[in-house]
Write a protein that binds this DNA or RNA. Sequence first.
DNA 1: TTATGGATTAGCT
DNA 2: GCTAATCCATAAA
Length: 236
Amino acid sequence: MSESVSREQGALASRGMTKSYMTRFYELHMTLRGGVTVLKAAFFNRDPRRVARSLLGKILLRKTPDGLLAGRIVETEAYLGEGDAAAHAAAGQTERNAVLFGPPGHAYVYFIYGNHYCMNVSCLPDGVPGGVLFRALQPVAGIEQMAEARGIAKSDLRKISSLRKISSGPGRMSEALGITRARDNGKSLMNPRSDLRIVDDGYRVRRAMVTPRIGIVKSAEQPLRYFIAGNPFVSG
DNA sequence: TTATGGATTAGCT
DNA sequence: GCTAATCCATAAA
C-alpha cells in the first residue's frame, strides 16, 4: 500500500508539479501507511449523521486486476429513515433499497439519471433503515487508472481541474472505481479480503463542515452534508 | 402496460 | 448559468 502511494507521488512529481502544489495535494496522502485497519460493524451501527461525519478522512479501497485504487473520503451525506423525505428509504422497503434496511456496513448502489451509479454504506441495525452517500474522494492511489476510467487524458493530470474531475462527485467517484449495482450492491465493506472496503489509516480531520445536502428537493433544508473544510476535492 | 422523474454530469452559452 | 442525455425503479392505470 505505502509502496503504491509512493509510486503515485513519484509519477506526479515526474510530471513537473510545483512544490507548493505537491504540498497541497499530498497533505492528506502522506499519512497513508501500512498499518491500516478495516472499519467494523460497530462503526456503521450508529446514526447516519455520526457515521457521515466519522467517515471523513477514511480511505475507500478498490482492488482491481489492474491495480489498487484508493481515495480519501472528503465529502458525505447522511440519509435517514422515516421522516427524511429525500431518502430512498422514506417510502418503505423495496427491492431496490433493501440494503438500506439490512445490517450496517454494506454497499447500497443505485442507478440515477440514466447514466450514473451512486454508492452508500448502510447504517444502523438490521431492520432499521439509514445510509451515508459517498459524494467525493481525494485520489490517493491508482490515479492514472482512475483517470483512464473517467476518460481523462494522462497528460492533463498535472492540472488541478482535471484531478478534481476524477472523483469529485458521487457519479464520478463510482465511475473512477468501477462501481456498479450489478457488481457491488449488497457487498460488505468490512471484509478485509473484499475488493471494496473502507479503512482507517490514522488520518485525523482538522475541521469538518456541515451544510444542506445537494441535488435534492424534499427535505433540502436539513444540514446533513459533511465535508473536510478547505479540501479542494469536495464537489459543488 | 405505460408514465414519471431522479441523492448527476458534461458540454455549451 | 442552463440544459440535454438517458435508464430504470416505482407508481399509476
